[in-house]
């Protein structure tokens, strides 16, 4: 069972790194060659903190999450780097060892919420079973009571607990999956687009619950989303990904308040809001480069306003803006 006790809630200060990802590269074998979906990314996460991962569709966010869970598909492969979780390298672990960690210590709210639920089993039963698998000594009534509490937490009506997944609306399934991930009190939750089907009111309530859990239990969170307003709401740190790489990384205030990479700026500029004059929505022009044969220089080069000839030739280096803010572009400082 979970050895963590309550009372470890005091956030940051002397908190140690729960997770350290170093130079991680992951890809997929395809007919057209090896697709480098994640290419040399590094970040770290302290206990009780949250990291938001943003970036456009297909940039590798889910791949990062699935790698941490040890759930890559058969054609997926870790090509390099380390994932230190509580000091141990997950990349080196066997499937059996990963099974012990999964859900108990690292849980994931899958983007494919619907696929994650068993269609022929009542929702209540599925969550109770998840709890009982990891705590076989728990009496069943206790497990069911815990399910009830989880339903309340994610704002699902208790009388719908006995339904089958297909009787749920899109957002209800998503909330059931969130309940499932919270069921075993993990240390790290990877939330992959967890609120795409939720209206703002329910979304706000659930995010508040998650933040409270973080404070009370010291849970760490990797929050993957394309919606920068939600990421800004829950994350202490932000990692911006583009075409398999991290391109900007740092504290929320610095990355969103003083964005340095052109992609981060473009992302922020294209965000629709209710404020101000209604303007035309302008997509970032151009296409994402191929991940099978990525360009040798900067990957955003073709779409960047400030690109110079050197950009397409040399691989850019990390530049430290502050001890808590870095960017993968050599030109960012000139503007």
């Amino acid at each position: 069972m979970n050895a963590r006790t309550a009372g470890t809630g005091n956030r940051n200060s002397e908190a140690e790194d729960l997770l350290e990802v170093e130079d991680l590269s992951v890809g997929y074998r395809t007919k057209r060659g090896f697709m480098r979906a994640v290419d040399g990314i590094s970040f770290s996460l302290k206990k009780g903190r949250s990291l938001g991962l943003v970036g456009e569709s297909g940039c590798g966010k889910t791949t990062v999450g699935m790698t941490l869970m040890g759930l890559l598909p058969p054609n997926g492969e870790v090509r390099g780097g380390r994932i230190l979780f509580k000091g141990e390298d997950l990349v080196q672990k066997t499937e059996e060892e990963m099974q012990r960690l999964r859900w108990n210590e690292i849980a994931m709210i899958f983007q494919a919420a619907m696929n994650a639920l068993n269609p022929v089993q009542r929702v209540e039963k599925q969550i109770a079973e998840a709890i009982l698998t990891h705590a076989p000594d728990l009496p069943e009534e206790e497990a069911l009571r815990r399910v009830e509490g989880l339903f309340q937490m994610v704002n699902l009506p208790g009388e719908r607990m006995h339904d089958y997944p297909h009787q749920y609306s899109g957002g209800m399934k998503q909330r059931a999956i969130i309940a499932m991930a919270l069921a075993c009190n993990p240390d790290l939750i990877i939330a992959d687009e967890p609120t795409t089907a939720l209206d703002v009111i329910v979304q706000h309530q659930i995010l508040e619950e998650i933040k409270a859990l973080q404070d009370d239990l010291g849970i760490s969170l990797i929050f993957i989303s394309h919606d920068i307003s939600i990421v800004a709401d829950v994350s202490h740190d932000i990692g911006v990904m583009y075409a398999g790489q991290l391109v900007e990384y740092g504290s929320r205030e610095e990355v969103f308040g003083d964005p340095r990479h052109y992609y981060t700026r473009a992302l922020l500029a294209s965000y629709p809001t209710l404020a101000g004059e209604k303007r035309d929505l302008v997509p970032i022009p151009g296409e994402t480069p191929s991940l099978v044969a990525p360009p040798s220089g900067c990957r955003f080069c073709d779409r960047c306003d400030a690109a110079a000839e050197a950009c397409s030739l040399e691989r850019p280096d990390w530049l430290e803006i502050s001890p808590t803010h870095r960017v993968l572009c050599a030109r960012c400082l000139s503007s």
Partner: peptide, 17 residues
């Protein structure tokens, strides 16, 4: 039905256009 719920602002804008 929520056609762009999983897309970032730039791709959503493309789809809207």
């Amino acid at each position: 039905d929520e056609p762009t719920s999983m897309l970032d602002a730039s791709y959503s804008a493309k789809i809207f256009n």
